[in-house]
Amino acid sequence: MSGYNFAYLDEDTKRMIRRAILKALAVPGYQVPFASREMPMPYGWGTGGVQVSAAVLVPEDTMKVIDQGADDTTNAVSIRAFFQKTADVAVTEATGKATLIQTRHRIPEEPLTKDQILVYQVPIPEPLRFLEPRETETRKMHALAEYGLMHVKLYEDIARHGEIATSYAYPVEAAGRYVMDPSPIPKFDNPKLHSAAIQLFGAGREQRIYALPPYTPVVSLDFEDHPFEARKAEGACGLCGAEDSYLDEVILDDRGGRMFVCSDTDYCRTRREAEEAA
């Protein structure tokens, strides 16, 4: 598209964001401040993820955008259209074919490879935020690795619900040092954070970027007598029959009818196509 630089952002901005990304990769889980730009979409729609994607995107990339695991939801469709328009890159819905995947709230079911980059949209990057409202204090807590408060939250969960009820945005410790918020992915996806792909997290409104380099050890916080447990809805997908994928509940009518289907639409479709072919 004429009148715009490749992938919307100007080169100076991309350079600034890339420097933040490099720093974030060097210190896994550390929140690097960056000068977040106004994007032509509202905060909460993935302005952080879009800026990170724009900064790492090259013309040879094949891009995939998912929202809650689905390729066809509003957020995914509009961000995909945005990059088709401003960067003219190839797009795909197939996880395996994509080189850059921007995601909101899910990690694809298909294991990622070392040739891929996964970009997360992050609403609130600070895992301690709802426990400690002062930014000066949370920064100090990160600097001194004072993370006892994170366990107070898990303690409260068990005291109130009999188990760790936090089911998304489940706090993790990256590379044995920084505690980070893995963005609101379900805790079912937490084990997948240990990945061959580069994982970048962008929070536009909060102006923070953090990252997990490939194969970073990621530990979900827990108690010795209440260990972390990746969990999903019971049963199999109503469409493809997968028992190992994360399920969404779909309401079918107003008489209590419902079904559970894979939240990862590409995974579900691939399985059904393979079944039909067989």
């Binding site: 006892g148 408060l149 107070v152 303690y155 409260e156 068990i158 108690f223 010795e224 007598d225 209440h226």
Partner: peptide, 15 residues
């Protein structure tokens, strides 16, 4: 939780 916070901040991890 209030009483436990200090314990957790010095490394107690057994609920």
């Amino acid at each position: 939780g209030n009483v436990g916070e200090r314990l957790m901040s010095v490394g107690a991890r057994h609920y």
